[in-house]
Design a protein around this nucleic acid. Structure first.
Lengths: 208, 208
DNA sequence: GTCTATATTATGATAGAC
DNA sequence: GTCTATCATAATATAGAC
């Protein structure tokens, strides 16, 4: 059996095939965001990526494999950005401040960074069970990262003791995740959205 | 041309046809929530409503007409609940308190009240343009209701003057709208979610 | 009102030329 | 690597019996 170029996952290669693969992924992310999981047709992806539908099968074994790749990237890019931003913070930064940082970064990724994140968020609930299972493990560690921040902040006395931090955390992430549904430069400046999101987060602050 | 039973919109009639229509709507809402707009098949709806797919055409002219009815109901039920709750408040209730009330009601509707609201929220972004246009006019007045509350609260000095109330409002509604994606009784008690949502809202309070 | 065909169309996927 | 057929399947919608 000869080598197949399929299933390569490194993105650093600048060869023609890799470029086409990237175009394909970006096209798929855009269509996925716009039409949803079931509405995403290979024909539409191909048209946007400027090739013919059967060419997709040179890069992916199936429609599902392509979609899974898009969703996984969307998810990982959010996670990577936030983790990176948190890592920049000096030791001893208060947990509430770390949460503010995570809120800002997550929001900026979701609003700025291509369709990948939006595609992942918007379609997670409609993916077939088999795909969700694969993706959920990545998702889980991201959720735990947030959860730890909130729990530490609360046991530290930075966050009100009487709020359910799990609910608060999920509400906040939800607010951020939903923002692509309504945001455009006409509605509000991105910095104003960030400021508003942080203001809401500050509702959790413990006050004397 | 004989009368057709189609396009009747009153729900008060208990006749057999109306009962079937309700079963159909509920089935469609459930499938729509689970599979998304494009993934919603008449066959799946029919199976869940315990009839054969072609029978749907006795009640609706097309798949789209049925889906539009579901989405419109989902939207109107949220709006009606919140408006009703706000109307119960005594005159002179501070605007911040009205906002808390709207937050609580909207959240409870979204988490408690069947699949209609979830179906509307989850699929709004993926509906075909023609359908969205119809539905957006209802949606608009609901958004304006919220916007007025926030603007009054701010000009009243109840809400911080330095936050963009439009962004804040959309973030909050987003947090609420997203909650069905993660909420279950196992994650948190519904009252705790309400309390957390109100805590976040209180982040907007102007403090001396 | 609800059913059993069935017409029509669109889509994912394959075969095989270039 | 990418293309032009082409196959197989599945879904909306209609016709017409009951």
């Amino acid at each position: 059996m000869a080598d197949s170029p399929r299933k390569r996952t490194d993105t650093t290669d600048g060869s023609k095939g890799q470029q086409t693969r990237e175009r394909l992924l970006e096209a798929a992310a855009a269509i996925l965001t716009e039409k949803g999981y079931s509405g995403t047709r290979l024909g539409d992806i191909a048209k946007r990526a400027e090739l013919q539908a059967p060419a997709i099968y040179y890069y992916y074994d199936s429609r599902e494999a392509l979609i899974e790749d898009v969703v996984r990237r969307g998810q990982q890019s959010a996670q990577a950005h936030v983790e990176n931003a948190l890592a920049q913070l000096p030791d001893g930064t208060p947990f509430l401040e770390r949460i503010r940082c995570a809120v800002e970064e997550h929001l900026r990724v979701v609003l700025n960074l291509s369709d990948f994140t939006t595609a992942a968020i918007r379609n997670m609930g409609q993916l077939p069970e088999a795909m969700r299972k694969q993706i959920r493990s990545d998702h889980k560690s991201y959720g735990e990262l947030w959860q730890r921040l909130f729990e530490e902040a609360q046991s530290n006395g930075e966050i009100r003791g009487d709020v359910d931090v799990t609910a608060a955390r999920l509400l906040i992430i939800g607010a951020l995740n939903w923002s692509p549904e309504w945001w455009s430069t006409r509605v509000a400046d991105i910095d104003d959205v960030v400021a508003a999101a942080i203001a809401l987060t500050d509702g959790l602050i413990a006050r004397p």
